[in-house]
Simulated scan of single mutants.
Amino acid sequence: MRIAIVTDAWHPQRNGVVRVLTSLCDTLRHQGHQIVVIEPGLFRSIPCPSYPEIRLSLFAAAGIDRALRDFAPDAIHLPTEGPLGWAGRRWCLKQGVPFTTAYHTKFPHYVRARTGVPLAWPYALMQRFHAPSAAVMCPSPSVHRELGEWGFHNAVQWCHGVDAATFHPQAKDFIDLPRPLFLYVGRVAVEKNLPAFLELDLPGSKMVVGDGPARASLMRRFPQVHWRIANGDQELSRYFAAGDCFVFPSLTDTFGLVMLEALACGIPVAAFPVPGPQDVIGNAPIGVLSQDLRAAALAALDISPQRCRDYAGLFSWDRVAEQFLTLLHPIGKAAGKAT
């Protein structure tokens, strides 16, 4: 199958959406499918206000039209609600071809966290974007239920996976710090609720691996925390494996892929009992969910690393890709011939 993915999230950005899309594309190509990714690097762009790592593409309509006609896809997927997502949506509606979308990020909650506006306002924009979609792929049962409550009638359940070959148990001597080592890996931004972790009175050491717009201010606020940035997946895997407990304080993630990556490295998870952790961890004995995050982190230290590793093995990208293919809606004729 020839699949076109029009996305605002792509390299060199470092976030869960890019990780998901990269792994998905790699798996689909390995299965023999042809993929074209139409992404911000192909267009003029400006930094996103308050988040300069993310580029907002400008004047992309002509480039998207040319790329889609040249590639003539069998199916089109729009995984992000940014400028490229909207431009791809307009193209599909103009050409009268079906497309699918995905709900990777709780933008309404992020907008509220940054501006204080009522949730209903950004949700109305999200509803408008996704309304013509043949299927809105939701990464977890919780997100599927939540979108249903907000009136998304075309939401369908999907899932995410983990690369267990890259993320695996390794020696802990990569990090020479007092133990136990409580670890967070991911974007450092206001919506990740990091102070809930960094303020905890925990034994041993706390470490944050990642970058983002809140990193500088949090480094000043929490100088006792160890701050790192990983260079590539191999080094990132070593950071994961060096931890003793992965602490995930976010209250707004749609899934939380980093939890799976930690588990694949044999590291148990401590998190709040909210969507994301409830979907990844649930009642499985590979993590502790509690409103008392300190108690959860301490209790997680007693969990078997092998049990965590075995659980992560259930989330293969081959399975995710096969499900993705069943949710796509084929165009029925080459888009390059559409009028």
Rank of each mutant, 00 (worst) to 15 (best):
C138D: 09
A135R: 15
R179M: 02
Y239V: 03
V280L: 04
C25D: 11
L314Y: 04
L177C: 02
F129G: 08
A61E: 15
A87D: 06
S250T: 09
V156F: 05
R55G: 11
G204D: 13
Q34M: 04
A171M: 01
P330E: 00
D201A: 14
F59M: 11
A230K: 02
V143A: 13
Y123C: 01
S316V: 00
H226F: 06
S217Y: 01
V20E: 08
P139D: 10
A60V: 04
Q306W: 07
H30Y: 05
A164D: 12
A67F: 00
R128P: 01
P139G: 09
T7H: 06
P83K: 03
K106W: 00
A135F: 01
Q278L: 15
T326V: 06
D292C: 10
R55L: 14
K192S: 05
S290D: 15
G88Y: 00
K94W: 07
P139W: 06
F248Q: 02
E146M: 14
Q157D: 03
Y239P: 06
T115C: 00
L21V: 04
T7P: 10
R55Y: 08
R69Q: 09
I286D: 10
H109S: 10
V190P: 00
A155R: 09
G210E: 07
T80F: 01
G282M: 03
L24W: 05
A75H: 03
L194R: 05
A299S: 14
S237K: 02
A113I: 01
I3Q: 07
G151P: 14
A9R: 00
L93Q: 15
S133M: 01
G287S: 07
P330G: 01
P195F: 00
Y103S: 01
Y184P: 08
R319T: 13
A300G: 08
A271C: 09
F248N: 03
I267D: 12
L327G: 06
D201S: 14
G32Q: 04
E235Q: 15
V225G: 11
T80G: 09
Y311E: 07
V36F: 02
R90Y: 08
M1F: 06
Y110I: 13
I175A: 13
G82S: 05
Q323A: 11
V17H: 02
F59C: 13
H77Q: 08
I303Q: 08
A338L: 07
K192M: 07
D244F: 09
A131T: 11
T326C: 03
E146Y: 12
S142K: 07
A9E: 15
P73G: 06
F240K: 07
N231Y: 04
L93E: 15
T80P: 12
I5Y: 08
R19A: 15
H130P: 05
V18A: 07
R179I: 03
V36N: 08
I267K: 10
R90L: 10
L147N: 12
I286V: 15
A60L: 04
R2T: 09
D279H: 13
V208C: 13
K337S: 12
A155D: 11
H329F: 01
F43M: 09
R89G: 10
L293K: 04
P47L: 09
R29I: 08
V37M: 14
V162Y: 10
I281Y: 07
R187V: 04
C138N: 13
T80K: 04
T254L: 08
P73C: 05
S140R: 11
G88R: 00
T100C: 11
I5W: 05
I267L: 15
W317K: 12
L293R: 04
D65S: 13
L236W: 03
R90S: 14
F182K: 03
A75P: 08
